[in-house]
């Protein structure tokens, strides 16, 4: 507990003495295994990538790599919108919804996690149990009731309504963050308390910086939610007007059975483009994953 300050960030590397030869062989085996696994994981993505540049609009049965390469699919997405295909508009809609959802949800989740993990008050166990029960309810079923409720307050076919739907109940998703906060030594909070900090200061100055990796996780997952969700969007944005759609519904409608022959490669291009903001965000924040939390910051 006291002397981990020299540990590097690479987690639980287990070091053994001697046998460097054996170790090297083990390393090679592991790398080969990882390589094979990575290939399995990346083949569909590769297919997405190359088909996005395919000059053949439909889905090829015989060729993995396209016969002719082109940028026309992207050109069509952004500069030639038609009555159905309005990709730029969808992209903007989704980005706005995802940003606001991400901000609201992350704040909610952190607030709930801190109070349930680090504070002790009467009714705490009750709240934990109650929220567990609520989380059990079949999401898709309550989705329909949510739709009716939103309709009765006039928020269907509105992007504000989408943000409300995605983020309002997010406080229930605190378990992972709470699990992480539970592992932060209470001694650090005690120390701050002795120095006269109130709970607000402990939350913002002590806990939040310590929880950086899990905050990154929360931010990414709440941001990913609206990008990948399409059932809620389908229920809520049902006006049939293409300009209201998010990328998810737009792309789904593009691949309707009658349209798949002319839209498949454009669909791949669209799927590729929406992954970009997520990939960038991840690249910026990835380093936080690797940083250990208590290692190096506890003074024992």
């Amino acid at each position: 507990m006291m002397d981990q300050m020299e540990k590097s960030g690479d987690g639980i590397r287990i070091q053994k003495m001697g046998m460097s030869q054996k170790r090297r062989i083990g390393g090679v085996c592991k790398t080969v295994l990882l390589f094979i696994l990575a290939c399995i994981w990346l083949i569909p993505i590769l297919w997405l990538l190359v088909t996005a540049f395919s000059a053949y609009p439909g889905m090829s049965r015989t060729r993995f790599f396209p016969e002719k390469w082109t940028l026309d699919n992207f050109n069509r997405l952004f500069f030639h919108p038609d009555s159905i295909l309005q990709y730029g508009r969808w992209f903007f809609n989704t980005l706005v919804i995802a940003l606001f959802t991400c901000i609201v949800s992350s704040i909610f989740v952190l607030m709930v996690s801190y109070s349930l993990s680090c504070m002790r008050f009467p009714g705490r166990q009750g709240i934990i149990r109650f929220s567990m029960i609520l989380g059990m309810f079949p999401g898709a079923l309550s989705m329909i009731a949510v739709y009716f409720i939103m309709k009765s307050i006039g928020l269907t076919n509105s992007h504000i309504g989408m943000v409300v739907v995605y983020s309002a109940g997010s406080g229930l998703g605190y378990l992972i963050v709470k699990g992480f906060m539970d592992t932060v030594p209470a001694s650090m909070r005690e120390a701050a308390k002795i120095e006269g900090a109130n709970e607000f200061k402990i939350f913002t100055r002590v806990m939040l910086p310590l929880c950086r990796p899990i905050i990154v996780y929360t931010v990414i997952s709440t941001f990913l939610g609206p990008w990948s969700d399409f059932m809620f969007a389908r229920l809520m944005l049902n006006s049939g007007l293409s300009k209201d759609w998010t990328v998810a519904i737009g792309l789904y409608n593009m691949l309707d059975k009658s349209l798949i022959g002319q839209n498949f490669s454009a669909f791949c291009a669209g799927g590729l483009v929406i992954s970009i903001p997520i990939a960038i965000l991840f690249a910026i924040m990835q380093k936080y994953y690797v940083e250990g939390v208590t290692s190096g910051s506890t003074k024992g």
Partner: peptide
């Protein structure tokens, strides 16, 4: 009473999106 501050707004959200539909 910081937990009251922290929990109140998320609770309203949960009521609107989870309890009422339920």
């Amino acid at each position: 009473k910081f937990h009251v501050t922290l929990l109140s707004i998320p609770t309203v959200g949960v009521v609107l999106m989870n309890i009422l539909p339920l």
